[in-house]
Amino acid sequence: MDAFFLYSSIYLSAVMVLSLYRAIFGPTVLDRLIGVNAIGSKTTALLVLIGLVYHRVDMFVDIALAYAMLNFIAVLGASRYFQKIKGLYDEPGRR
C-alpha cells in the first residue's frame, strides 16, 4: 500500500505541473488566480498523502487543514484586491 500512495503522490505532482502552466502563462490575472487555486486544492490532498507515506498522518493532517483555510483566505484576498483595478485586464500585447 505504501508504494501505491507514493506513486499516486508523484502522479498528483505531475498533474500540478499542468495547472502551473495556467498559473504562469494565463492571459489575465484572474486566470492565474484560478491556476493557483487549483494547485492549492491539490496540495491539500498531497500533504495527507505525504503523511501516509511517512507514517506521520497525525502531524501532516494539521498542516493540510491549515493549508486548506489559508488557500481559501488567499484566494478571497487576492480577488478582492484585483477587482478594484479597472484597466488591469487589457493585456498590452492584444491591442
Binding site: 484572474l30 488566480l33 481559501f72 484566494v75 478571497l76 484585483f82 485586464y89
Partner: peptide, 15 residues
Amino acid sequence: TATHAIVDAGVRAGL
C-alpha cells in the same frame, strides 16, 4: 465561496 469571489472580481472588472 472562493469560486464566487473570483467570478465577482471578473464581472466587476468588466470581462
